[in-house]
Simulated scan of single mutants.
Amino acid sequence: MAVLERGPSLTDQAAEEIRARIVRGVFQLGEPLSEIALANELGVSKTPVREALMELKRQGLVEVHPQRGTFVFDMNATQVEQLSEQRAILETAALALALGKDRAALGRRWREIVEAMRQALTEDDAERYRTLDGDFHRTMFELADNPFLLEAFDLIAFRVQALRNRLSRDPDLNSTSFQEHIRLAEMVEGGAAAPIDATLRGHIEWTREHYLAALAAVGPEASAAPPRAKGRRRPSD
């Protein structure tokens, strides 16, 4: 049980802890959240927990339903489609900017992350691997050097990571995904931008397909929207 230290930012501490549990999958998609239970677990009053949940609501990680309560966010197939579309728009824009502003830095940073991913796979540390996967993609936004683009990405980043942690737990998929990240890193260090863009788009497209397949396996309500036409199979993000 994590007991928070007393200090001036209990709300921030509570939000960080609850957010981490959502992203890691400790709290499942659609799971109800009790202010009283969370306050007791974190060793604080209900006020910072309530304020933390409102902050997480603004980040899209928590849903508040009047007369029903507060729940971890959930997504149906249509919403996964829409999130993937937004992600593709943002990531390809960030990639183009990062390549134009400092291609060498992007290649260097991606190589470092790929090596850390290799180590995580060797140690069978799937959680660490998925965190590094998120870092790999965020690097494009950091090197794009556009705070507005980064802000737009941050609006969906936690939800993307939460889905990644829940729907990409197959070791075989992680292994295949690793090869795709190697390919992207190698392409940055030599070659035109267009093939890299196409590879990134394909990478995100397979992620979308994988999410939809996992949702469909849960039940018919979760798979309300059929997947679009599929291209070359891609590894999970």
Results as ranks from 00 to 15, higher is better:
residue 1 M to A: 14
residue 1 M to F: 06
residue 4 L to K: 03
residue 10 L to Y: 02
residue 11 T to Q: 13
residue 14 A to Q: 02
residue 16 E to G: 08
residue 16 E to Y: 14
residue 21 R to D: 12
residue 25 G to H: 07
residue 27 F to W: 06
residue 27 F to Q: 00
residue 31 E to Q: 09
residue 34 S to L: 05
residue 36 I to N: 01
residue 36 I to R: 05
residue 37 A to K: 04
residue 38 L to K: 02
residue 41 E to R: 12
residue 46 K to A: 12
residue 51 E to H: 12
residue 55 E to H: 09
residue 55 E to R: 12
residue 55 E to T: 15
residue 55 E to A: 10
residue 56 L to W: 05
residue 58 R to W: 07
residue 58 R to V: 05
residue 59 Q to A: 10
residue 59 Q to S: 07
residue 64 V to T: 10
residue 65 H to D: 08
residue 66 P to N: 09
residue 66 P to Y: 05
residue 67 Q to K: 15
residue 67 Q to H: 14
residue 70 T to M: 10
residue 71 F to D: 05
residue 72 V to W: 00
residue 74 D to C: 08
residue 75 M to A: 09
residue 78 T to M: 11
residue 81 E to I: 12
residue 91 E to F: 01
residue 92 T to G: 02
residue 92 T to E: 13
residue 94 A to I: 04
residue 94 A to D: 05
residue 97 L to Y: 08
residue 101 K to G: 07
residue 101 K to W: 05
residue 104 A to E: 11
residue 116 A to F: 08
residue 118 R to W: 07
residue 118 R to V: 04
residue 118 R to T: 14
residue 125 D to M: 00
residue 125 D to I: 00
residue 126 A to V: 03
residue 131 T to C: 15
residue 133 D to G: 04
residue 135 D to G: 06
residue 140 M to I: 02
residue 146 N to I: 05
residue 146 N to A: 09
residue 147 P to S: 09
residue 148 F to T: 12
residue 149 L to N: 01
residue 152 A to N: 10
residue 154 D to I: 04
residue 155 L to C: 13
residue 156 I to S: 03
residue 158 F to D: 15
residue 159 R to C: 00
residue 160 V to S: 09
residue 165 N to L: 06
residue 167 L to I: 11
residue 169 R to I: 09
residue 174 N to A: 12
residue 176 T to Y: 13
residue 180 E to H: 13
residue 183 R to K: 12
residue 189 E to S: 11
residue 190 G to D: 12
residue 193 A to G: 10
residue 193 A to S: 15
residue 198 A to L: 15
residue 198 A to V: 07
residue 205 E to K: 07
residue 207 T to N: 14
residue 208 R to L: 07
residue 212 L to I: 04
residue 216 A to T: 04
residue 220 P to H: 14
residue 221 E to C: 11
residue 224 A to G: 13
residue 225 A to K: 09
residue 228 R to S: 15
residue 228 R to H: 12
residue 230 K to N: 06
residue 236 S to E: 07
residue 237 D to R: 12
residue 237 D to H: 15
residue 237 D to I: 14
residue 237 D to A: 15
residue 237 D to E: 14
